[in-house]
Design a protein around this nucleic acid. Sequence first.
DNA 1: ATGTCTTTGTGAACGCGTGCACAAAGATAG
DNA 2: CTATCTTTGTGCACGCGTTCACAAAGACAT
Lengths: 286, 286
Amino acid sequence: MATGRNHRPATSRSRGIPDATVARLPLYLRALTALSERSVPTVSSEELASAAGVNSAKLRKDFSYLGSYGTRGVGYDVEYLVYQISRELGLTQDWPVVIVGIGNLGAALANYGGFASRGFRVAALIDADPAMTGKPVAGIAVQHSDELERVIEENGVSIGVIATPAASAQPVADRLVAAGVTSILNFAPTVLSVPEGVDVRKVDLSIELQILAFHEQRKSGELPDDGRAVPGTDIGEDAGGGVTGSPVAPPAASVTKRTASAAPAATDRRGDEPGNDGDLPAVMPA
Amino acid sequence: MATGRNHRPATSRSRGIPDATVARLPLYLRALTALSERSVPTVSSEELASAAGVNSAKLRKDFSYLGSYGTRGVGYDVEYLVYQISRELGLTQDWPVVIVGIGNLGAALANYGGFASRGFRVAALIDADPAMTGKPVAGIAVQHSDELERVIEENGVSIGVIATPAASAQPVADRLVAAGVTSILNFAPTVLSVPEGVDVRKVDLSIELQILAFHEQRKSGELPDDGRAVPGTDIGEDAGGGVTGSPVAPPAASVTKRTASAAPAATDRRGDEPGNDGDLPAVMPA
DNA sequence: ATGTCTTTGTGAACGCGTGCACAAAGATAG
DNA sequence: CTATCTTTGTGCACGCGTTCACAAAGACAT
Ligand SMILES: NC(=O)c1ccc[n+]([C@@H]2O[C@H](COP(=O)([O-])OP(=O)(O)OC[C@H]3O[C@@H](n4cnc5c(N)ncnc54)[C@H](O)[C@@H]3O)[C@@H](O)[C@H]2O)c1
Ligand SMILES: NC(=O)c1ccc[n+]([C@@H]2O[C@H](COP(=O)([O-])OP(=O)(O)OC[C@H]3O[C@@H](n4cnc5c(N)ncnc54)[C@H](O)[C@@H]3O)[C@@H](O)[C@H]2O)c1
């Protein structure tokens, strides 16, 4: 979630592809690539939609934003569509990427094949810990933070991945931006502030789990209690260096005396399907 | 993004909290927790919104769905709100979780502190590789896949995390569901099919990067080429990596006769390159 | 050519999410 | 108790995204 302004001047009216559509293109591409490997020549919107897990009407509308690449009565040419989507997403070019913070997660990311398989090339692995410098991870020697700016400039890196502790995320983001990076994928649980023109997308495992927990709670019985009732189980422990941490403490109702029954007994509305369709997976860049 | 059905009868009108709001609650909770640690008693919607990186009006509306916990002229009581949101998200209770696939990513997740800090407890680590069995990861001994059902039942696990290669994701999901899991967090790049009533959320690094690439491409110059134009243009730039094997070659728009399509880039590279575990979907239309 | 059958492309309706703007609630001062 | 000032809670309008439903484009058969 980009911290700075989050405006949408709707300036993108002419050739702009809807954000929701852009977010689905990679999904279609993946399905198409699989078909391509099986040498399937064409595919109908119905089949492809099924493979991508979406509605066929939605898929057709999405493709309509790219132009008319289908043939009525037949479907879409797989190879041609793979190319068109790849081009639209900018995957026909090479994107050098730097990963900052080579800890548990950073190392896993460096080893991840999903990078290279789509035109993303790990240009460098950066870590502030001197003990890490020179150490090979996924076949690449880790470089010290001091090299950050140089690496970015020399390789023309425009995409950076942050996998440092939360406390270091903002400073790292600032350096990345100052050095020329204009797109950041942030794994640290923090809201980053970046100047306009810089895109930030975040991946937060903790948030995903919390959303699941919410739905899970709905499925099996109602809320724990009215809320101002007894203190709940307290959950302590926390990983070091997180903005998070303090255990869930029972209420404290201060300020003005909380008139009781603030929580309106959740009416057991069962119509609410568990389908978490609407939830946005991540963030929509500005 | 649930894979299975994705409808929204809109039946949820009374007590249902909007999905978009639910997705933001963890964000507010994080900001509030930080304030709580600094012993800040109250906070205004403006301040909190800023800390969470959202619009203040949006935040107030979100909170309005939970009830009226604020005090006009003053703001919100931090401790009280932390408790209310935690309760709403179901964090006042303990959620045992199983992680399946203890490879690079799975191990990182097991070591992640964000789990425990919010009521999520790693009940077990499961891996199919016999060599991994018994091996301690993050202080927990890895168990063989055979133990999956037993572990789920004995611990009452309802949330499962999949970090196996894409090809194994669906089978693992099936077993998880059969054993009683009703919420799945999937890290494998595949569309999962699950019965109604089971929530699936996915985290796909590759998709995030592709979305960033799309915007990045827009920022610096337009598309490589019109695309609809005659193929053969030097778009063939295509970095060595290319999009998953098929060398993103401008396929001819065989709108009518698709002859050569039968022999399209005969999957030359085998998914062994330092990055191609199983990125491709194994799911096919019914 | 003409007819039939399949599947695309999209107009239109609808619902959700966002953000503005403001009345009202309540704190605080006099 | 009254006045003023701060900040919430929300009615309302708007735009985006989703989905339906269907005309028409084109393949294919005769
Ligand atoms: N491990 C996970 O599964 C997981 C999941 C979601 C989010 N996260 C988040 O990702 C981040 C990293 O997690 P982790 O488990 O890998 O932590 P980690 O402690 O294992 O690794 C962090 C690494 O960052 C380096 N680092 C610290 N400050 C730095 C700086 N200023 N510049 C460059 N490098 C710096 C450290 O030397 C260390 O190697 C954390 O913010 C965590 O909350 C982790
Ligand atoms: N590493 C990353 O940063 C990253 C990022 C995004 C997505 N992913 C995806 O996450 C998944 C795991 O990635 P990884 O890098 O950890 O891969 P990995 O190969 O290191 O680990 C996979 C693990 O799963 C185990 N496994 C295989 N089949 C299994 C089964 N049926 N049941 C239980 N365990 C099984 C393997 O023994 C192995 O230990 C992949 O699908 C990958 O595409 C990884």
